[in-house]
Design a protein around this nucleic acid. Structure first.
Ligand code: ZN
Ligand code: ZN
Lengths: 419, 419
DNA sequence: GCTCTCCTAGCCTAC
DNA sequence: GCTCTTAGGAGGCAC
């Protein structure tokens, strides 16, 4: 099997949640140039190492592991097939420590969080154990049906409407107020937004703030009392009868479910399983989703189609918030959109090829122009001898079935070696 | 002042109206490849020459004519300064005969036209003299105030909102029903559209069709009778008292006003003056406007901001309609947007420069890479062109920490990608 | 591995 | 000198 981009490009970033959150909470705003990312993350990790709350975990995937082999029989399925496709799921032999931490941290601190997107005024205070008084916003079945209906909505007609939204659709999207899953409050400013609440989630804060509404609540309108739940309703709390508590969809045992994942993505999963299956539960930034799954802005803007978690921009908190998407949801939609995993890969290859063709086309015209120029002198000739190739992306040649990389400067092609 | 594009690129196409209309009416649909335009237009002219209705006129501008000199003192003004700026207004020494004909032709034939955008049901039948029973849709003052208020609307806030419409604006635009200047009927399908009415305007048709509503009328809704004018109202006809008739804004004498220009652009101008001042009254396609005046799709989509005349696509009548804009209106807005004529020219220059810089940047990197290229004897060169590298085993370079493979034949090294 | 917006280019589409 | 849509790149960035 040919491996294309990403053996170096893409890794599963099962850590991205906390990573960005930690960064946001602990880092100062200076020195955030784009090229400093690696250094920055190093710094963060060191901080994390000292953190009493950090729960580190060494994850090691090996490329030769059978897990990384694509299962073509799964690819054409339109259900959420989560094969460990090489391109998107290949991980370096050892994930850098920098990148390892878990969502657990986010709920460890005594920060109190206010749910501004659901119908209850009760304040959920997450605790270390994950039990005791936090509210289960929605159950798995309703969340799943939501997701399903939306996907079918988008794919009911011709596939043409999928790849791009028409203006009317955009209009509809922008106008539609976000209705929560179970009805109730609809809030124009709602958007799973942590941007303004991050301070209260800071693990450093050890005292509970007084129970007064956040500023955000001043935006509240349209309370539908008929649909509001009494937060004292015992159903909203974990029951002493373990059978009655919602359980992790993966292990069907743990009730230590990730609060945020349930609320934002409508997915019931425990912290352990979430970390165990990054190919399903890792989070991707919008930019990553666009690059890896070839989704568009319009699609990612549609919260009903693909929910996202807004987090403060790690580069600068005042900038546009970072949008985090759940891999399994993104993947399900992308496979639908592109015709399974194979279709997605084909399209990716097509674009890489297109890109390379464009490059070469321009290159050829440049060369043609260059031919008219004067001959280079001997010094230049010798300089030309030492040449480090700068290979472009690997492009699959359908005829031969092998991928090829082309050097941008001299144009030589090398076959991409299978590993 | 620097003169940029267009002494050869751009001409005033004072003829575009009839040209496209004639083309649409007379030409068959085959053989409409993009490169055939010139030939096509030649063909049209020959037909026009034989037309008994065509009123030809030789227009000759000379490039060295003082008219073509830019008047900087006019440029900073935000009013409709119509200096003959070189770039946009330069005309070839002699306008090609092909391009000369007048809007008069459109109204000469016995085609009857139905005004679908104004409040009257009366059918205006244009005659050669331009008099007798056609309806004056609006007067100059109201049209001008419309234009003025819209421009100020767009420039009231920061200039940032000008260059691009926000989604809400787009939404608003798409939803807003087109209200005619004087109120009355609002018709969702209205848009100064000739696409479906062109057949009835065909000069070849010599018999008046029976007076029944066009299909278009079946879309009519929302009649506001309180605002409808009685078409028998003598004010709606040309008066015997010449003083009472609306007059050309240019010469202030002729009442032989261009019906279409009044209705669509809200501009009162006689046919003679229209042809006399192409720098004000010539029409531009949307593409031209974008290129020459640096306006955006969003701006040109806004009919309230810049009205446009929809004509059948000259390439193929079933394709998207051609949008024709009035130069003086486009220019007024563009000057507002870019800060006068100078500002527009600056921006144009800036973009040209940017384009060139980008080109050169890419070129330089290519060249830089090319310089490093091995260039020995011709035999080796040809060998290198078709050369499949045979890489040896990966070797770790301790200094850099990366593994490297070396080609046995040419010796190039590639960094081994980590998996 | 941040997101938005604008601009550009290229192609196809439009019945 | 037809128009629309889209993908992709480059900057600056709801303070
Ligand atoms: Zn579990
Ligand atoms: Zn006149």
């Amino acid at each position: 099997m040919v491996q294309t981009r990403s053996q170096t490009e893409k890794n599963i970033r099962k850590d991205v949640i906390n990573n960005s959150e930690e960064r946001h909470n602990r880092e100062t705003d200076h020195d955030l140039g784009g090229s400093n990312h690696r250094a920055k993350r190093q710094k963060v990790v060191m901080t994390e190492t000292a953190s009493p709350n950090s729960e580190k975990q060494e994850v090691s995937f090996n490329n030769k592991n059978k897990n990384n082999i694509v299962h073509p029989e799964l690819s054409s399925s339109s259900s959420v097939t989560v094969g460990l496709e090489a391109r998107r799921h290949t991980v370096k032999d050892t994930i850098n420590d920098n990148n390892v931490s878990t969502i657990h941290n986010a709920n460890f601190g005594s920060g109190f969080t206010v749910d501004v997107s659901t119908e209850s005024f009760s304040f959920g205070v997450s605790s270390n154990s994950g039990g005791g008084g936090f509210i289960v916003e929605q159950d798995a079945s309703s969340a799943n049906s939501l997701q399903t209906s939306i996907v079918s909505k988008y794919f009911a007609g011709s596939t043409k409407t999928v790849s791009s939204l028409r203006p009317e659709q955009r209009t509809r999207m922008e106008q539609s107020e976000l209705i929560t899953n179970e009805g109730g409050i609809s809030n124009k400013n709602n958007s799973n937004n942590d941007s303004n609440a991050s301070a209260s989630q800071n693990p450093e804060t050890q005292d509970l703030p007084p129970l007064k509404p956040l500023k955000k609540f001043q935006n509240y309108v349209d309370y539908d009392f008929s649909k509001m739940r009494d937060s004292r309703d015992p159903r909203n709390f974990l029951s002493m009868d373990m059978e009655k508590n919602p359980k992790c969809n993966e292990c069907d045992k743990s009730i230590d479910l990730d609060f945020k994942f349930s609320k934002i993505f409508g997915v019931q999963v425990c912290f352990a399983c979430k970390n165990k299956f990054p190919e399903k539960y890792s989070l991707l930034t919008k930019t990553e989703v666009k690059e890896d799954y070839l989704l568009t802005d319009a699609e990612l803007r549609d919260e009903e189609l693909l929910p996202h978690w807004l987090k403060p921009n790690p580069h600068k908190s005042t900038w546009n918030s970072m949008m985090l998407f759940l891999r399994m949801q993104v993947e399900a939609f992308a496979f639908k959109k592109w015709g399974g995993e194979d279709g997605l890969d084909r399209e990716y290859q097509r674009r890489q090829l297109e890109k390379q063709k464009q490059k070469e086309k321009k290159f050829k015209t440049k060369i043609a122009n260059l031919r008219k120029r004067t001959r280079t002198d001997e010094a230049e000739k010798s300089r030309q001898r030492s040449h480090t190739h700068e290979f472009g992306p690997a492009v699959l040649i359908p005829e031969t079935g092998v991928s090829v990389q082309t050097c941008d400067s001299c144009g030589i092609k090398i076959e991409v070696v299978e590993f």
